[in-house]
Design a protein around this nucleic acid. Structure first.
Lengths: 280, 280
DNA sequence: CTGATAACCTTACGCCATAAAGAGTTCGCG
DNA sequence: CGCGAACTCTTTATGGCGTAAGGTTATCAG
């Protein structure tokens, strides 16, 4: 797990919120010595490229430097250290997310769109799921994405305390669900073994090592055999492995369940302050 | 992220499912050469102790070896490598979870108990949240815990496909929610800075670096100021920081919302196969 | 041109996982 | 009893990591 901002917090924050070059807050440059050939933005982009392509594990100061034709140490002129680089990468990536949803079709549709966008974002940049949320990065785009979700949920008319909990619930759920799909993809890429292959090999071995599996886990076996969507005939298609599509379906169904619960909470709040729901 | 089983899969599996010493499946020992002073179990316990105390980041073959008075390399006689050790630690820890819940008070109460136990388990061993779920460890206790949850949910009478999705939803949610609380605790332990301190310092810096924060994120500011539970007067008490207790409340409220949704799904299924809900 | 300064490099340190090979111990068997 | 096989455990080495320290060089102000 990568923890945020262990270095000088002030420097981290001003890097995250840095104004575009040349603004009054950022004088062009002291203009002495050689011109910098790199920039924070270029380094962050290179970092994202590495992490997207090879995963967070492959992200090192050396690999990022190499991608820019520099040594690892060259980066330290621009960025205080690796943790700050990851923070910058995280916040920069978050900038890809939409910043507004049409409230015309109601909050529920908007939340579904938000969740789908977030899901796809997480699959595009699986490494963002490995950035700790406990001590948030506190960058502009992190705040913007929170504000965006809040704007959507504001339409529910829920009171602040309930709203906070719903936000937490939605974020946890989307991240958790995306994590499974993303890790599956990462594992496949890292090992070169697809999901189906892997599971088949493991199932065979398991049957060998644990001959009494069916007696020990009857419900698991029943759930697996009964009502399983048949895996497609010809391996993986353009939309990822079978398991990945299963994860997507679990995600959509779970979101629907959650939104049903939210609607119940709204109804309860509308019924008056006496009827206190589970959100208090 | 730690991926499971990159070594010889057969060896991993038989380690995970190893029968107790002396069984017919495991002859006492070839009995030649010095008696082993260590054992897989002792190493796994030492690993758990290290990870519990210092976090997953501090878990290295060296630290585990040191705790047993050995070098790092001594462990390789018992365990193929670090990934296998982590798998074994994970499955061993899962053995702490209860294996059955009283169905007398209904499935909902049982699920709430299950969730609370899982939550506490995750806070007791925060590192388990860093073990990838995409390629499961496939150990006995992992399967047992799934079977336990299934036994609880079996009482809902939901059909297999819906059941699978509910299981995924619950597991994602509990892990996601616990992760925040656990990471917060980990970060506090790793940096020696408590949550409140950290946030106050950051809030001050943020106000300095981003003077127009309130204009840019009006909803966030409103949500923070309105209806906030006042932090307790005197810092952290026995039950963790203020933020950790907030996380716990978010967790309980979120679970209630989810269970409301599950009840709706049950009602819909009972209404007949024509009324298809979001779980299909 | 000179001296200061900033960008970049080389080197080095202490971590990490683990491969390879050797040291030391304990037994089965001749 | 004694030898060699089998086994545990250590030492050493390789190639990775983040980054501290210090050197080199390009580019500027004066």
């Amino acid at each position: 797990m990568v923890f945020a901002g262990q270095g000088d917090p002030r420097r981290s924050l001003s890097l995250l919120w840095r104004a575009p070059e040349g603004t009054e807050e950022r004088p062009p440059r002291p203009a002495r010595g050689p011109k910098p050939a790199l920039s924070v933005a270029a380094i962050v982009d290179a970092g994202i490229a590495v992490a997207d392509a090879e995963g967070m594990a492959a992200l090192s100061m050396r690999t990022v430097g190499e991608r820019l034709g520099r040594t690892a140490m060259a980066l330290y002129t621009y960025v205080p250290g690796k943790t700050e680089l990851v923070d910058l990468m995280y916040d920069r990536a978050l900038g890809e997310l939409p910043t507004g949803y049409d409230p015309a079709d109601g909050w529920r549709t908007a939340v579904v769109s938000w969740a789908a966008d977030t899901w796809e974002f997480c699959l595009r940049h699986p490494w963002v799921l490995q950035v700790s949320q406990a001590r948030p990065v506190l960058g502009p785009n992190e705040y913007t994405s929170m504000e965006t979700l809040l704007r959507v949920l504001d339409a529910t008319g829920l009171e602040p305390a309930a709203l906070r909990r719903i936000v937490g619930l939605l974020v946890h759920f989307v991240r958790g669900a995306a994590r499974t799909a993303a890790e599956s993809r990462q594992a496949a890429a890292a090992t070169g073994v697809g999901d189906e292959e892997w599971w088949q090999a493991r199932a065979g071995l398991l049957a060998e090592v644990v001959p009494d599996f069916a007696e020990r886990f009857p419900l698991l076996v029943r759930l697996e055999t009964e009502g399983a969507t048949p895996p497609p005939g010809d391996g993986e298609d353009a939309h990822g492995s079978y398991l990945e599509r299963e994860a997507r379906r679990t995600f959509e169904a779970g979101l629907a369940v959650i939104l049903d619960g939210v609607e119940a909470a709204i109804a309860r709040q509308a019924a008056g302050p006496c009827a206190r729901g589970p959100l208090e």
